[in-house]
């Protein structure tokens, strides 16, 4: 991390590295470790439960190490699900989730980067007013638009399809993404664009070959946010999808929860499913963590 050496280091050197400093650092690390434990314990409990047998669940004792460990739960949960609904196979549900996630992600990133370009690099009357309106839409609770939107999709005959979750993303539905990208576009020097114009490039070419590569860090951060948001999306599939075979993971989990565990909650399977759902998001997060955390911070701090 490069940021560790900046900022407050000068203040600390003034204090010197005396005994008080050591005690203080001890307290700091102690508290940080405590916080880390609070973050990790529920998470480890999820993984631990997913590897337990049913008898190990309700011993009434705290036991993080499953003995014996049964990784078979991860397969068993799908067998169980198939026994209720034969069509809800692992590949189908994952396929559904990926289909929705990637189409929405592609639409969000593409449209937000185009709209942000229009807001950041061109002067036109009405721009600031429109941008302010766009930012203020974050205050609109999603639920208020749900009933009329449901009626629109019903009119179009597109209920129980993936349309409501996918192509509206082409309309730059996330104001936050437009905002973050605009912040990045603003840092690109004008001369770069002017040089491209002199070379005879048109707007589409400048956008694609000049601007997009320059804002790559924020594109990656937004890709992580967008993947996470769409992969985890629960409310819209809940409203629009009625055929269980079409469910994404989040809804499959609810289906499983409601149909199987009414009498005795089979937490080992539920946690196996939760872990499966979390894994892709975590992998992408860990891979892109630096760009992701820096990217979201730019929006928050400069905003």
């Amino acid at each position: 991390m490069t940021t560790t050496t900046s900022g407050t280091s000068a203040v600390w050197s003034a204090h010197g590295a005396g005994r008080g400093y050591l005690v203080r650092q001890g307290i700091v690390y102690g508290l940080l470790l405590l916080g880390a434990a609070l973050v990790l314990i529920p998470f480890l409990w999820m993984i631990s439960t997913s590897l337990k047998t049913e008898e190990q669940l309700f011993t009434g004792q705290v036991n993080f190490i499953p003995d014996p460990a049964v990784p078979g739960n991860y397969l068993e949960v799908w067998t169980k699900l198939n026994s209720i609904k034969p069509g809800m196979t692992f590949s189908r549900i994952i396929g559904n989730t990926l289909f929705i996630t990637f189409l929405a992600m592609f639409g969000e990133i593409l449209s937000a980067s185009i709209v942000a370009y229009g807001f950041a690099r061109f002067r036109w009357r009405g721009r600031n007013v429109l941008f302010a309106i766009m930012l203020s839409t974050v205050m609109i609770p999603g639920i208020i638009t749900r009933v009329p939107a449901f009626l629109i999709w019903k009119q179009l005959g597109l209920l129980d399809t993936y349309d409501p979750m996918t192509w509206p993303s082409l309309f730059a539905w996330g104001p936050l993404y437009v905002f973050l990208m605009r912040q990045f576009y603003l840092t690109v020097p004008r001369e770069i664009e002017e040089a491209a114009i002199l070379d005879g490039a048109n707007v589409a070419q400048i956008y694609w070959y000049v601007m997009l590569p320059l804002i790559r860090p924020i594109l990656l951060a937004i890709a992580v946010l967008s993947f996470q948001g769409n992969w985890n999306n629960f409310q819209s599939p809940l409203i629009y999808l009625t055929t269980p075979e079409k469910y994404p993971l989040a809804l499959a989990m609810r289906f499983f929860d409601q149909s199987l565990s009414k009498e005795a909650p089979q937490w080992q399977y539920m946690m196996a499913m939760a872990t499966m759902m979390a894994t892709p998001v975590l992998i992408i997060y860990f891979l892109a963590q630096k760009q992701f955390l820096d990217g979201i911070n730019i929006g928050a701090v400069k905003g």
Partner: peptide
């Protein structure tokens, strides 16, 4: 983490 997964957890 998915809100759905954490709610269940």
């Amino acid at each position: 983490l998915p809100a759905v997964a954490t709610a269940l957890l």
